[in-house]
Lab assay of single mutants.
Amino acid sequence: EMEYEEITLERGNSGLGFSIAGGTDNPHIGDDPSIFITKIIPGGAAAQDGRLRVNDSILFVNEVDVREVTHSAAVEALKEAGSIVRLYVMRRKP
Rank of each mutant, 00 (worst) to 15 (best):
E1D: 13
M2Y: 02
E3N: 14
E3D: 11
E3W: 02
E3R: 03
E3H: 03
E3S: 09
E3G: 07
Y4S: 08
Y4Q: 06
E5K: 14
E5I: 14
E6G: 04
E6V: 02
I7L: 13
I7S: 01
T8P: 03
T8N: 11
L9S: 01
L9D: 00
L9N: 01
L9H: 01
E10A: 09
E10H: 08
R11E: 06
R11T: 08
G12R: 04
N13P: 06
N13G: 11
G15K: 15
G15I: 05
L16C: 07
F18H: 00
I20V: 07
I20E: 01
A21C: 07
A21I: 12
A21S: 07
A21T: 09
G22C: 03
G22R: 06
G22T: 03
G22F: 04
G22M: 04
G23L: 08
G23W: 02
G23M: 02
T24C: 06
D25P: 05
D25F: 07
D25R: 09
N26I: 13
N26S: 13
P27F: 11
H28K: 08
I29M: 08
G30W: 07
G30I: 11
D31P: 12
D31L: 11
D32T: 13
D32R: 08
S34Q: 14
S34P: 06
S34G: 07
S34F: 07
I35R: 00
I35S: 03
F36V: 09
I37K: 00
I37Q: 00
I37L: 13
I37G: 00
I37F: 01
I37N: 01
T38Y: 07
T38F: 15
T38S: 13
T38I: 05
K39P: 01
K39C: 06
K39M: 05
I40T: 02
I40Y: 01
I41A: 05
I41S: 14
P42M: 06
G43F: 12
G43R: 13
A46W: 02
D49L: 05
D49V: 02
G50W: 03
G50E: 06
L52K: 00
L52C: 12
L52H: 00
R53T: 05
V54A: 10
N55Y: 07
N55K: 11
N55S: 05
D56E: 08
D56Y: 05
S57E: 14
S57C: 13
S57I: 10
I58G: 00
I58L: 08
I58A: 02
I58M: 07
L59K: 15
V61K: 00
N62L: 00
N62G: 09
E63C: 11
E63A: 09
E63L: 06
V64L: 09
V64Q: 11
V64Y: 12
V64C: 13
D65A: 15
D65T: 12
D65R: 09
V66E: 01
V66M: 06
V66R: 01
V66L: 11
R67P: 00
E68H: 03
E68G: 05
V69R: 07
V69K: 12
V69G: 09
V69A: 15
V69F: 14
H71S: 11
H71P: 04
S72T: 14
S72M: 10
A73V: 09
A74I: 07
A74P: 01
V75Y: 06
E76R: 08
E76A: 07
E76P: 01
A77F: 13
A77H: 04
L78D: 00
L78I: 07
L78T: 07
L78Q: 03
K79F: 01
K79Q: 02
E80H: 02
E80Q: 02
E80T: 04
E80N: 02
E80D: 15
E80F: 03
A81D: 14
A81K: 09
A81P: 15
G82R: 12
G82I: 04
G82W: 03
S83M: 11
S83K: 04
S83V: 09
I84W: 12
I84C: 11
V85N: 01
R86H: 14
L87C: 02
L87H: 00
L87G: 00
Y88N: 15
Y88L: 02
Y88G: 01
Y88Q: 07
V89S: 15
M90D: 14
M90E: 14
M90F: 04
M90L: 02
R91H: 15
R91P: 12
R92F: 03
R92H: 04
R92W: 09
K93W: 02
K93G: 11
K93T: 03
K93S: 13
P94V: 15
